[in-house]
Structure formats: C-alpha cells, structure tokens
Nucleic acid binder design. Structure first.
Lengths: 343, 343
DNA sequence: CCTGAGTTCTATACCGGTACAGTACGTTCG
DNA sequence: CGAACGTACTGTACCGGTATAGAACTCAGG
C-alpha cells in the first residue's frame, strides 16, 4: 500500500490539502460537517495523523524537551535524589504537554544526542559549563535552563541554597562543641581518594557551595581537619574507613546522605558509636536518611520542587517571558546522628 | 542574521548543496580538501550542522527510541526495579547511538506522546495491550518490543520466567511445612484492598504468571487462603496489616520485595516474629531485599539484562532481523525471612 | 588507444506537513 | 442598501535536509 498522506485524503474528499491539515490540527478552521467527513475518510484510508517529523520541520517545534545529564542515566539513578529530580521533571513536562528526551554523553561521537536530536528546549542538570553537551546546545541556540549549575547570566538557573544549608550544618556541629571536623565530599573524576588539597574539589556548583558553607559555619576554629574527596566512581564506604582511620575528628560533614550513611557504617566497623563518639551530617534529606539507624541529621532540599520550577522556567523561556533565577531554600533537619562532642 | 542553512554554505563555497550535506553526513563522498574548506566556511558562518527535524523528515529516521510506560515516571521510579530497568535501557541505547524519549500517558489528549512524538521504534513496558499508547504505536506501525507483557505474536517480547520463579517460591514454603499461605499481589486499579475474587487480579503479565506459579507450587494443598490485591495507588503497609489481621496464615507470598517488606513491618507491629511466626517471600531481588532485617527470601530476576536484551531485540527489529521471543530465568534466593511453619 | 572501474561532485526529485494571505460568500449594522 | 465583518476554504510558498542516478574526470590494464 502506498503511504497515506494528507494529500491522499484531500484527493479522496475533494478538498485542498490545507483543509485536511486543519481538520487535524486546527478544528476551528472548518465546519464540523466537513471535518467529520475528512476524519471519516482518513479512518477509512488508515491515516493516523500528521507525521511528527514533517510537522516538526514545518512548525519549527517538536514537542520534546531535552534533559542533559553529565553521565549515563544509571549513574544518575544511583543517587535517589537525582532520580527523584528526573521523575519530577518528567511529571511536570507531561502536565504541560511536552515529552522528555534523555540526553546523555555519547559513547561515540557519530551520534551525539545534544547535537543530533530535535528538541524545543533543554534542562541542563549539573553539567559543567564547558562540557561538550552544553556547548552543542548553546551553538544550536536551544533555550536552556540550568539546574544546580551556573551557566552564565544568559541562562536562567534554578539553584538550591547549598551554602546556607551547609553553613547551618556546620554551625550545628560547632554549637555541639565539635572543633575537629572532617569533610567527605566530591572530587573531580580521577582524583585520589584522600587529599587535603582544596583544588581537587569537584567544580560542580553544589560541591563548591557546600564547601564554602561548611567553612563559613565552622567559623574561627580550625575549619576542616582534612577531607576525603571522592570521584564519582569512588566507593564511599572505603573512603569513609580511610577517613576515620587517618583523621582524628569528632564529626564529619558529608556531601550526601549516602556518603553520611557510609561514614556511619564505617564508624560501626571501627567500633565507634554514632553519635556518642562521632557525629555525622548528611545532605539532601534522601528518604534513606530517615530510615536508617541512627537516623541522619541532614540538610533538606525539595527535589520535586526543583524539578517543577525548572520546568516552569523552561516554559517561561519558551513563551518568551523573562525567567528570573531561583534559589530554593534548604533546611537543617536534626535527627539522631549528631550529638555533643565527646570530652 | 538570516538562518544559516546548507544552501548558504554551498553558495559561499561555490559547490552544490548536496556536497555540503555530504561533508557533514557522508565524509567519504568527497575529497578531504574540499571537505575541510566546507567545514571552515560552515564554522565561519556559524552553521551548527544539519537540522535534526529536516534530517528526520528526509531520512525517515529520528535516532530516538520511545519507552512507553503505563504511568508517570515518578510512579515507575517508586519501584527501584522499574527504575533500574529504565536506566539499563537508556545505557544500552546510548551505547548503540540512540536517544531515549519517555512516553507517558498524557494529562490531556491534545498532546499524546505515543501519537505525536517522532521515533524510530519503541519499547513497551508493562502496558496493557488495549491501552491507548500501545494502540497509537501500533497504528503508526512503529516497531515495538514488549517487555513484561504479551502484545501478541507480531510483537517480539522479552519476558521473565515469573511463573517458574513463583512456583519455586511456593514450593520452598511448602517444603517448610506451610499449608496456610496468603498472597499479596497487584490488582486492577480501583479494586478494593482486600478480596478473594481471583478476577480482580491485575492483567499484567507478571501478575498473572506469578499467581499461576504460586498456585502450581502450593500443589494439592488448599492453594491460597486468601489474598490482598493492591491497586497501584494502594498502601502496601495498610494492606499487609489488613491481611495479617484477617487471614490465619503462616506465610505470605508477595508480588514484590517492597510488598514483602511491608508485610514484615506489619508483622512486627502485630507482635509476630519473622520468620518464627510468619514466613514472607518477596519478588525481584530488589537491593532492599538484602539490606533490610530480616533479609528477604525472594525470587531474583536480572533487570539490567532485561533492559539490555530489550534493546538488542529492538535493534534486531530495526535492522529487519527476526527477533525471537526471550524468556529470562529467575532464581529463588533464600535469606532470613522464611523458616519452618510454626507447630 | 580504447574500455571499464573508480573517484568526486551535481541535478533532480522528493520527505509530509504548516503559515499566511488571500478569495468567495453570507450577515450584520448604520 | 452599501460597507464592514466573520466564516469557510484554497493557493502558494516555504521548512531544511537526503537519496539516487548520472556526469565529468582520472587512471590502470589490455
């Protein structure tokens, strides 16, 4: 059977192709009676509806929004917080009649999603400003919204107040009398597990901001005894063991709740009780944080709101409205993993 | 600035438009020297590369594959097993130079991803054969692969041997002397929480097959004392409490590890010890199953393999190769949540 | 010197729609 | 009763590429 197009239906019914197009895409442009006849003819011929590719070319819109990630999706999902963000973005896009296309770094440059996939706009999640993906999107002039990252003034951003949250966590420890505090945070990929060099820190916005907040909150005390910087491929538990064995501290500030829980388990392994001998603070308020024992003191952020607001900003941009930068609040949640510094 | 197209570069360099197209898409079709000149001119004019929408129309391929889900993405992610499957699919597609577009049921028919988004093929995950999404894909003649569902002979399927796994779980309980066994499984949406009517069961392939396997494995004994059928919106913990309060059983077979853990907590709440007073078996071997106490006896399936094989089948279909149906094995994993039936 | 087989580039013909500016024909209103 | 307007439909001009067949030229082999 030959391909069924708008034209074949137009011929069948005896109207112009444009009228058939309108029957599907702009019902108010023709009489109900004629539209019914056209739809009937279409059904009879087995016409499904306008071809998305042709429509995308003619309209200049695809109906899809890209979500640019800095690693494979399985990596994002290893972190429950990132997974919740992705889910939130998808839900919000659905509610607005947009589809989600996942843009991951390619294995092979021959097909580069950020360069080769049609989309109306993109949400950039935690990607370095100089990454290839961001570069392609920018060169294609695809409207972007940056989440958990600063891509410059031109790109609207949705951030979390990591610094204030981290400062609150550090002040909490300080108020409990802790003076020897370590940090377990993210490092640039490839960095050795343990280091005291501040410049191996991950350049991600949250990593920088949280570190800055911790330093502020620890105030005049020797701010950080040492820290373990962990690449994405690192094993948090091994890093935590290493940290506790080599650093003489009474508390640890962690980049995430997953890291914090690793510290808790490492402390148990080494026979140190939490929070009796060691206080541990996480970040994000992962569902995990409330479930494990001892429940983790952490800094809460509202991940679903982050996704929702990112999509709102995106639709603002698509509609030509100005999109103000947003900074979402954080909140210290004190649970069982922190206590007074041991004497 | 006027839009930069292939034609503008062709004019600038003084070659045909086709040659410029080849410079980007088929480098072996022209001399290296000319290609370099074209690329230089393109860079100078700020040409990014062929427009994906136009290319999709001309080539008849988009480079994107749809993943059809039967609910919002956040719902899929509530289940760690489904999330792992999605991640696996994405990783495998990336490895093959394809992008992933998420196809969820629309809030509003005006934009229906399964109907309106361009894609080369689709993976259908746990969707009812008569759902609107499947119907649109079928009418568009989009190549499909069905996962955890049977869409008829024409659609290649990737299944898990749920029945054999469930039977093994039931036989395990039988061997331990259990004769009064309940089931906690999925129901059709909207079904009341507790029922003994078999036909409220979810029509999903896994739900049917697991139930069949459980019945087989319990053999000649009164097969199932009763079961709680749980819609997707139901609260497993509440259902588990209800079940244990009303059914006089020594063991519960569950549709998932999440359900099983809910039963464990409900048993604790009611003062019954697991596995002393009550044995519980889950399904899937969710990471959770090994972490919680008591660790859950469960039926393992390899979710990453399921994603990988689904994508393999999909590429087979795209290449015109026949795609044989696949049934992946399951394996009973005995941990701490099952023990001899109490006297 | 002629033939056949590469290269390298071009001409033509689509791919399947939508936007926009009409045209033709009632209706309404001053 | 004529101007102004709304409704219903059409004609034309794109949207920005790619496939395919062929033309022009080079080169090796007989």
């Amino acid at each position: 059977m030959a391909k069924v197009t708008l034209q074949s239906i137009a011929d069948q019914v005896g109207v112009s192709r444009m009228t058939v197009s309108n029957a599907f895409s702009r019902p108010d442009q023709l009489s109900a009676e004629l539209r019914a006849r056209i739809l009937a003819a279409a059904a009879e011929l087995g016409y499904v509806g306008p071809d998305p590719a042709a429509r995308a070319l003619a309209r200049g819109r695809t109906g899809a929004v890209g979500l640019l990630l800095n690693g494979p999706l399985s990596e994002a999902f290893a972190d429950e917080v990132a997974a919740a963000f992705v889910a939130s973005v998808s839900d919000e896009l659905t509610a607005r009649g947009l589809a989600l296309t996942v843009l991951t770094p390619p294995r092979d440059e021959s097909f580069f999603p950020a360069r080769d996939v049609g989309m109306d706009a993109a949400i950039v999640y935690t990607c370095e400003p100089d990454s290839a993906g961001v570069d392609w999107l920018a060169r294609r002039a695809i409207p972007m919204v940056a989440v958990d990252q600063d891509l410059g003034e031109a790109v609207p951003r949705v951030l979390v107040d990591d610094r204030v949250g981290a400062r609150a966590a550090a002040e909490h420890l300080a108020a409990l009398g802790h003076t020897r505090v370590a940090v377990l945070t993210l490092a640039r990929p490839g960095t050795p597990v343990r280091t005291d060099e501040p410049d191996v820190l991950s350049t991600s916005h949250p990593a920088r901001e949280r570190m800055a907040g911790w330093r502020e909150g620890l105030g005049e005390r020797e701010p950080v005894v040492g820290y373990v910087a962990l690449g994405t491929e690192g094993d948090p538990y091994a890093a935590a063991l290493e940290l506790l064995r080599t650093a003489d501290v009474t508390a640890v500030l962690c980049f995430s709740d997953v890291f914090a829980y690793a510290v808790v388990r490492a402390a148990e392994e080494l026979g140190r009780s939490v929070p009796g001998d060691l206080s541990v603070v996480g970040f994000d308020d992962n569902p995990l944080a409330a479930t494990v024992r001892p429940a983790l003191t952490t800094v809460r952020q509202d991940v679903r709101a982050k996704g929702r607001i990112a999509v709102e900003r995106l639709t603002d941009v698509l509609a030509g409205r100005p999109a103000e930068p947003v900074v979402l609040p954080t909140e210290l949640v004190v649970r069982e993993s922190t206590g007074p510094a041991p004497a």
